[in-house]
Amino acid sequence: MRLLTHNMLSCNVKGVTNGFPLIIQADKVLEKPAELNHDFLRNMFYKVDWKALVDAAKSMGYSELPESAEASMLESLDFLNRFHHALMELHLEEGALICPETGRKFPVDKGIPNMLLHEDEV
């Protein structure tokens, strides 16, 4: 699971109002090189929650993202490289995603988050 996907997930348990971002429990992190695409990154920049990405990257052991970001930074190749690495190359292979409100754990097994709910959570 890439951090781009983490950025799109929130707790789906019934009644939870503040289920984003999910806290990452990183038991195993993989780095898989991916081709950098400027247009794609520019596009995604406006869709991701930056703070959630910064915190997620930190919990995966990567602290090279600036705390805040603005569109003008997209002109910097250095910034794009870091953004790309955090968003597309870091994979949570084993661990869990934890709801910030309830502490409900969603396991991540072989890179696939399990967001299935129990009957009493729907």
């Binding site: 799109m8 997930l9 929130s10 869709k47």
Partner: peptide, 19 residues
């Protein structure tokens, strides 16, 4: 592709709104 084990779009619906 990124894979998510879920019922339809549960857990993705909020953040993927309009995307």
């Amino acid at each position: 592709a990124e894979l998510i084990n879920t019922d339809i779009m549960s857990g993705l619906e909020k953040r993927l709104e309009g995307l």
